[in-house]
Computed example of a mutant assay.
Amino acid sequence: MEKTQEIALTQMRKSVQKLGSSIEKYGDSTLLRFLIARSMDPEKAAKMFVQWQKWRASFVPNGFISDFEVKDELENRKIFLQDLSKDGYPVMIIKASKHFPSKDQLQFKKFVVHILDKTIASSFRGREIGNEKLIGILDLQQISYKNVDARGLITGFQFLQAYYPERLAKLFILNMPRFFVSVWRMVSYFLEKATAEKVVIVSNEDETRDFIKEVGEENLPEEYGGRAKLVPLQDVVLAPIED
């Protein structure tokens, strides 16, 4: 770790304690994500970290969102969780044609947390280190206007940015139809610069080749140029996490 990072971490720990919170359970890798998300500003990172702790305690009091709590969202089998990419990132696939705007926004928000928590946890090798990331694939193949959910997309990105800092390695958007360009332009307005830089709209052969190479053929489903089968999120059983 660089000296400047060590100094920033020390200052962040002091700032967290001044805000009346504890960092005993969290290692440097977790704290560093918040620092990076706040341009290495210890006070801003500490504030973000404490806000995250309070949100987590109130919104996810049991430490996880169960399948039962989001059963309506799981019914459409629109989320798939593949094995790790060649860089060790779990790959989460969203088939937008199977999604419809939710009438229950609280359940949808819980679903977002359920997806992100389970995807990230699938990369743990026994225990969480704190710097695990994920690759997302948003497949817009065969979507129609009834599948468009700008509010849902914005909610997903806002949760990522506020509560899962530096968890997103890359988001690939595939098969974007022309009518969706204006929707994406509106959604992009809510993205922080660091998030926007991680979004890749795959639109030509070169970009497709790079996409397949980054994810890895072994892990990528056949319909996207790989050799794997699609694995529905609810069919993935995670190994117990070590204390």
Rank of each mutant, 00 (worst) to 15 (best):
K3S: 13
Q5R: 01
I7Q: 12
A8L: 03
L9S: 00
Q11C: 11
M12T: 09
M12I: 10
K18A: 01
K18W: 00
L19T: 09
E24Q: 14
D28C: 03
S29L: 06
R33K: 15
R33D: 02
A37W: 01
A37R: 03
S39M: 01
S39L: 03
S39V: 02
P42C: 04
P42W: 02
K54D: 11
K54S: 07
K54R: 09
W55A: 01
A57W: 10
A57Q: 15
A57L: 15
F59Q: 11
V60A: 04
N62L: 08
N62M: 02
F64D: 01
D67E: 15
F68Y: 04
E69G: 03
K71P: 09
D72S: 09
D72H: 07
N76H: 06
R77M: 12
K78S: 15
I79H: 07
F80N: 04
D83I: 03
G88K: 12
G88C: 10
Y89M: 05
I94K: 04
I94G: 06
I94C: 08
K95F: 14
S97C: 14
S97Y: 07
K98S: 10
H99W: 13
H99G: 13
L106R: 07
Q107L: 04
F108M: 09
F111R: 03
I115Y: 00
L116I: 11
K118G: 05
T119M: 15
A121F: 03
S122R: 08
F124M: 06
F124E: 09
I129E: 11
G130A: 09
N131R: 11
E132L: 04
L134G: 06
L138T: 06
K146L: 13
A150G: 08
G152H: 08
G152F: 11
L153K: 03
L153G: 07
L153T: 10
F157Q: 05
Q158K: 15
Q161N: 12
A162H: 07
A162E: 15
Y164R: 08
P165K: 02
R167M: 09
K170I: 02
K170H: 02
K170A: 01
I173F: 00
L174G: 12
M176K: 02
M176W: 00
F179H: 04
F180R: 09
V181S: 04
V181H: 04
W184Q: 08
M186R: 12
Y189H: 12
F190K: 08
E192V: 06
K193F: 05
A196D: 14
K198H: 07
K198D: 06
V199N: 13
V202R: 02
N204S: 00
D206Y: 05
T208K: 14
D210T: 12
I212R: 15
I212H: 13
I212V: 15
V215T: 06
E217L: 14
P221E: 01
E222F: 11
Y224S: 05
A228Y: 10
L233H: 00
V237A: 07
L238K: 06
L238F: 04
P240W: 00
E242G: 01
D243F: 10
